[in-house]
């Protein structure tokens, strides 16, 4: 069950982010060269604030699933053992450190996006 949950979350988040990217990209293309007034007006709209906050949350979730998959593929005693036998002993520690790193980075990015757009 959890396998299909992660699968769906990854695909739905991808679709939302695709739609969001197209929205932002089309604004930037139509308003090229970008002027301060039009950009500020756009980024102060309520729909921009809500959709961007959602995009921030969704992209962090999407990234976390992908990065976790990478961790469980490459930072294991088996895979690290292919690279160097001495590394493989520390596989769990390395994977743990990597998980903490991307989690902290991801949550910080999410927090900063919210702070930036809402103030």
């Amino acid at each position: 069950m959890i396998g299909s949950t992660l699968f769906y979350v990854q695909r739905y988040s991808a679709t939302y982010l695709l739609a969001y990217t197209i929205w932002i990209a089309s604004f930037l293309i139509v308003n090229n060269p970008l002027e301060y007034n039009s950009w500020t007006a756009f980024t102060n709209q309520i729909d921009f604030l809500v959709l961007t906050s959602l995009a921030a949350a969704v992209s962090i979730i999407h990234a976390f699933i992908g990065l976790w998959t990478i961790g469980t593929d490459y930072f294991t005693s088996r895979t690290l053992g292919f690279l160097s036998v001495s590394f493989s002993k520390y596989a769990d520690t390395i994977r743990g450190a990597y998980t903490i790193l991307f989690s902290v980075l991801g949550l910080s990015i999410f927090a900063i996006i919210l702070l930036t757009i809402w103030s």
Binding site: W39, S59, A63, I70, L105, I109, I112, I113, T116, I117
Partner: peptide
């Protein structure tokens, strides 16, 4: 991986200073 570690922080930087 590149997007998460580079493009995303970069976008944040651009968003912050442009607004």
């Amino acid at each position: 991986i590149y997007i998460f570690f580079i493009t995303l922080p970069l976008s944040l930087y651009l968003l912050y200073f442009s607004t």
